[in-house]
Nucleic acid binder design. Structure first.
Length: 746
DNA sequence: AGGAAGTGTCATGAT
DNA sequence: TGATCATGACACTTC
């Protein structure tokens, strides 16, 4: 059954591929959003499409990372995955996004340091590596975008190669320390809203752990202690014991990102992405930037120094530009997937591909063949031995000068008709209407084909010019790995092993109760962040901070938890904190506490069944307690399973999305090739027509007068011979030949 | 206020 | 047979 479903799913995919290739728009989202129950059944069916058995094989993934779903290492893990995705996305021409992220991350710690006042143009003391990237004067660095999303971006794993190249771990730590110092000084605390909330949760978590579970996770306590030691040792400052936890986690995450990027990114050691910067520069026209400005990438933002208009708008513009660039490079993908309006001004203003007619951009060098070596059998010996028709309507071809005719066509051959040696437009495009045109039908057909092709391309959102550019970019030596097998297939193969395991052997790494195992939306967030900087606030790392689904938590408590004023913190007694923690607890935790369950929910949920039973046997538990414990275990496991399931579902959708992108890319390439072939064919036909004209013009009747093109026409016979026949007969035969292919099509 | 998105939970079937 | 997992469906929370 499973294999059957898998077969159906794969078949469906192949069908989708075929549909895509033949020009039928394939909108995966439509199929996945339940409009079509049978398809949905097949795709989202209970055990087919989303069943990925390797998901349990977490330990084999990501360089041997063994991450428990509830482990705090999952942050690193997802950061690394985001990074990997970004790196992999390089072959999908989304490098500019990576570039921008890199820039922001560079500025992140320092921008945060002085960024206490939003939208102020404070000057920053910039460190060495950062200056190179951002340019000498860019007050925009302190834009609220940067401030507001700095931590988010850092967490995104958007680590720049320049950083990795220039900054050591000590540098990063120093930046982190400086940043923290300013946070302690009260600078721009509100800027780090999410981080702040993260810290709050860390506080709560640690407090709770300390109060209830001190003996349960010694590893975590030691870890927290180590983090504190690290901070204190380097800053010389005494931090609140709870605060550095989350930040160090962030710092570690950044470090991990650096390491990973260095290991994976082909330009990990380079300071810039020349091709991408230039491409972005091209994509951003008419921004009043000095011509000598090195970092054109930032031009839309850099102009903010001279005009204090909405920086966020600029940011969005930049994002839009990059998105449009990615859209154009990815041909119609974006139109299908992102529903970009066709008349989007950005797409026209910042279009990479000039809206030139297709013929001007099609490279013909592939269609050019060398000179023809064989004689043109059509006119060589056969010409002289043309059978003289006895019929009066079939006049013999009487060349006025057979030798000259031979010399004229001797250098040509039949192959030359179809593979012209020169395709530089020497063919006579202006065949006079008075001339017989046995090729007219074919030419018209070719033109129609091309026109229909163009229509198709337009309909499908495929611009062959863009496809051509895409292909050129593919061929270009940009240093990007463009192996298409890199993206979806290998991605899924590697991601297939991504851990959805609830392997309880990793219990040591577990966080306190309520730790969020996965961030199912990580990819989505990464993608969303390209579109709208405000989405950056929804970073997976911080998501669980803003999202509190503790049902019994009063809104007022939530409010106070989100942004507690300093006074509250000072006044906050242990009672209030306990109350807050109490409200933070899940329902099952409350129940467990009410039932006086002698061990943590975490153990209940994650212990292997043997250890779990062993644990139960150690205590004298009532039936109600046992029942609750089993319920807690069931719910906890199911909760993780649901998270896995959603994550898998999202991954599947994203992989399908990427598959469709790749298929559309292939389709664009094939379309481009088709256009090239059509153009080549048309030029060959033009060549034949010019030769026809030349031959016909040299023909003379018995009286030495040229034949009238309106009355006579040359006809190529199947055996290579050429006959001069009356025009009416030629037209009839031409019509007959026209019908044949049409009939064949039917 | 209403919708979208995220999340937890239950029921059910499969392994 | 029990444990576990996967997933659809639903309810709830948050934004």
């Amino acid at each position: 059954m499973l294999s059957l479903k898998k077969y159906l799913t794969e078949g469906l995919l192949q069908f989708t591929i075929l549909l895509s290739l033949i020009g039928v728009r394939v909108d995966v989202d439509t199929y996945l959003t339940s409009q079509l129950p049978p398809l949905r059944e097949i795709i989202l069916g209970p055990s087919s499409a989303y069943t990925q058995t390797q998901f349990h094989n977490l330990r084999n993934t990501l360089d041997g990372y063994g991450i428990h779903p509830k482990s705090i290492d999952l942050d690193n893990y997802f950061t690394a995955r985001r990074l990997l995705n970004q790196v992999r996305a390089l072959d999908r021409f989304q490098v500019p996004t990576t570039e921008v992220n890199a820039w922001l991350v560079h500025r992140d710690p320092e921008g945060s340091v002085s960024g206490s006042q939003p939208s102020s143009g404070l000057a920053l003391e910039s460190s060495s590596g950062l200056q190179d990237v951002t340019g000498p004067d860019n007050g925009v660095r302190e834009s609220e975008t940067e401030q507001g999303f700095s931590e988010d971006l850092e967490d995104l794993g958007a680590v720049a190669p320049p950083v990795s190249g220039d900054l050591t771990k000590e540098d990063i730590d120093l930046i982190d320390i400086l940043w923290r110092q300013d946070i302690d000084l009260g600078a721009g605390r509100e800027i780090f809203d999410y981080s702040h909330r993260q810290k709050e949760q860390d506080v709560d978590k640690e407090l709770r752990d300390g109060a209830e579970q001190e003996d349960t996770w010694p590893g975590e306590g030691a870890e927290a202690l180590a983090r504190n030691l690290l901070v204190d040792g380097e800053t010389g400052e005494s931090f609140p014991a709870q605060v550095p936890g989350g930040e160090d986690q962030t710092a570690l995450s950044l470090e991990e990102c650096l390491r990973l990027l260095e290991a994976t990114c082909p330009f990990g050691e380079n300071a810039e992405f020349p091709a991408d910067i230039s491409s972005i520069t091209e994509a951003v026209p008419s921004e009043s930037e000095p011509p000598g400005l090195q970092n054109n990438l930032l031009s839309p933002l850099l102009t903010g120094t001279e005009s204090p208009f909405d920086l966020e708008q600029q940011w969005q513009d930049l994002m839009s530009i990059m998105e449009m660039q990615a859209m154009e490079v990815n041909t119609s993908t974006s139109e299908v997937l992102y529903n970009a309006p066709p008349g989007d001004p950005l797409s026209t203003n910042y279009s990479l591909a000039p809206n030139t007619p297709i013929n001007q951009n099609v490279s013909l060098h592939q269609a050019s063949l060398g000179g023809c070596s064989q004689d043109f059998s059509l006119f060589s010996p056969e010409v002289e031995s043309l059978p003289v028709a006895s019929s009066s309507t079939l006049l013999p071809l009487v060349p006025s000068n057979s030798t000259s005719l031979n010399s004229t066509f001797g250098s040509t051959n039949l192959a030359g008709l179809f593979f012209p040696p020169q395709l530089n437009g020497t063919a006579n495009d202006t065949a006079g209407p008075e001339l017989p045109d046995p090729l007219g039908g074919l030419l018209d057909e070719a033109m129609l084909d091309e026109i229909s092709l163009m229509d198709l391309a337009i309909e499908e959102g495929f611009n062959p010019v863009q496809a051509s550019q895409l292909e050129e970019e593919f061929d270009s030596d940009s240093g990007l790995s463009l192996d298409s097998s890199h993206s979806p297939s290998s991605l899924s193969s590697s991601e297939g092993a991504v851990g959805y395991s609830s392997d309880s052997e990793t219990l040591d790494l577990e966080e306190a109760e309520g730790a969020v195992g996965y961030q199912p939306e990580y990819s989505k967030f990464c993608r969303m962040s390209y579109q709208d900087p405000s989405q950056l606030s929804c970073l997976p790392y911080l998501e669980h901070v803003g999202h509190n689904h503790t049902y019994n938590m009063a809104p007022s408590a939530l409010d106070s938890a989100d942004l507690p004023p300093p006074s509250t913190l000072k006044k906050g007694s242990k009672e209030k904190q306990a109350d807050f923690l109490d409200k933070q607890m899940s329902r099952d935790e409350h129940r467990a506490r009410a039932m006086k369950i002698p061990f943590t929910n975490d153990k209940i949920i994650n212990l292997p069944v043997e250890e779990f039973n062993e644990l139960l046997s150690k205590y004298q538990l009532s039936e109600a307690q046992l029942s609750l414990i089993r319920d807690i275990r069931r719910r906890g496991k199911n909760k993780m399973a649901a998270q896995n399931c959603r994550k898998r579902k999202l991954d599947t959708i994203l992989n399908l999305e990427r598959d469709v992108e790749d298929l559309q890319r292939d389709k664009a390439r094939l379309l481009r090739e088709k256009v090239e072939f059509l153009r080549s064919l048309r030029q060959m036909k033009q060549k034949v027509q010019s030769l026809y004209q030349e031959v016909f013009g040299r023909l003379r009747d018995e009286n030495g007068r040229p034949y009238s093109p309106s009355q006579y026409a040359l006809q190529y016979a199947g055996d290579g011979s050429v006959l001069l026949i009356p025009r009416t007969l030629a037209d009839q035969q031409a019509r007959r030949q026209e019908r044949k292919p049409k009939d064949r099509r039917k």
